[in-house]
C-alpha cells in the first residue's frame, strides 16, 4: 500500500472514530454511532429488504445512464461536428441545462403518470444536456489531421469511427460518464422519493417520516458502498485501459 493510500485510510478511520466518540458522548437519537448503523445495515441485509430496494434503484440508474449517454453522445457529436446543428440546438441545450431537476420530475410524473418510464425519462432529461456539453467539446477538439490520414488511406468508415474518431472522444466520454453517474445517483433518489413506491429514495422518504436516522444512514452506507464499488471495478479499469498509451 502506498503512502497516499495509508493517509486516505487513516483519515477515514479518524472520521469514524470521531463520529463514534461524539455519538457516545451525546447519546442522542439524532446521531447514532457508526456501530449502531452497521448493526442496522446487517439486519436490513439479512431481511433482504435493502437488497431489493437497492436492486430496483440500480436498475433505474443503469437504464437512465445508458439512455442519457447514448442520446447525449449522438447529439454532442452532431453539435460538435456540424455548426448548423449546433446553432439549431444550442438554445434548447441552454434551456435543458438550466431547468431545475425538480420541475422536470414533476412534469414527467404529471404527464406520464407515476410510472417507471416517467421516472427514467425525468432522470435522462436532466442528464442528457450535461453529456452533450462534454461530448460536444470533445467533437470540436477532434484532430482533423488524423481523420485525413484515415481518408488518405481509404480506411473504411466503421474502422475510421472505431479506431480513429472515437478514441479521440474517449477522455470526454469518460468525463461525461463519471459526472453523469454522480448526477444520476442523486436524481434517481429524488425521483423515487417523489413518485415511486420502491427503491432507495422511497425507503429514505419513509424513514424520514419516522425520523429513523439509523436506517437512513444504513441505506446511505449501502448506497455509498455501491458507488465506490462501481468506481473501483468499472470506471477506473476502463479509464486505465483507454489511457494505457499515455506515457
Amino acid at each position: 500500500m502506498t503512502r497516499d493510500r495509508w493517509l486516505n485510510a487513516a483519515v477515514l478511520a479518524g472520521f469514524f472514530l470521531l463520529w463514534q466518540l461524539t455519538a457516545q458522548i451525546l447519546e442522542s437519537p439524532s446521531l447514532p454511532a457508526p456501530t449502531t448503523v452497521l448493526i442496522a445495515l446487517g439486519q436490513q441485509l439479512a431481511s433482504g429488504e435493502l437488497l431489493y430496494h437497492l436492486g430496483i434503484t440500480l436498475w433505474r440508474v443503469l437504464i437512465a445512464f445508458t439512455v442519457s449517454m447514448l442520446i447525449g453522445t449522438c447529439l454532442g457529436i452532431l453539435m460538435g461536428r456540424y455548426r448548423l446543428a449546433n446553432s439549431a440546438l444550442d438554445g434548447l441545450l441552454v434551456l435543458g441545462l438550466n431547468t431545475p431537476a425538480l420541475v422536470t420530475i414533476i412534469l414527467c410524473y404529471i404527464w406520464f403518470g407515476l410510472v417507471d418510464a416517467a421516472a427514467i425519462t425525468a432522470v435522462a432529461i436532466n442528464k442528457i444536456p450535461t453529456v452533450i456539453v462534454t461530448v460536444r467539446e470533445g467533437a470540436r477538439a477532434v484532430d482533423r489531421k488524423l481523420l485525413d490520414v484515415a481518408d488518405g488511406f481509404r480506411i473504411p468508415r466503421y474502422r475510421k469511427l472505431l479506431r480513429v474518431y472515437l478514441p479521440q472522444l474517449y477522455p470526454y466520454l469518460m468525463a461525461a460518464a463519471r459526472s453523469g453517474l454522480a448526477l444520476i445517483w442523486k436524481i434517481v433518489l429524488i425521483v423515487e422519493l417523489l413518485g415511486r413506491s420502491n427503491g432507495v429514495g422511497f425507503q429514505l422518504g419513509t424513514y424520514f417520516q419516522f425520523f429513523d436516522i439509523t436506517n437512513i444512514l444504513a441505506y446511505t452506507f449501502a448506497f455509498a458502498s455501491v458507488v465506490l464499488f462501481v468506481e473501483a471495478v468499472v470506471m477506473r479499469p476502463i479509464d486505465k485501459f483507454i489511457s494505457r498509451w499515455r506515457s
Binding site: 485525413d148 490520414v149 480513429v164
Partner: peptide
C-alpha cells in the same frame, strides 16, 4: 504527411 500523424493510442 509533414508530421508522422500516427494514432497515439
Amino acid at each position: 504527411f509533414q508530421d508522422p500523424r500516427l494514432m497515439p493510442w
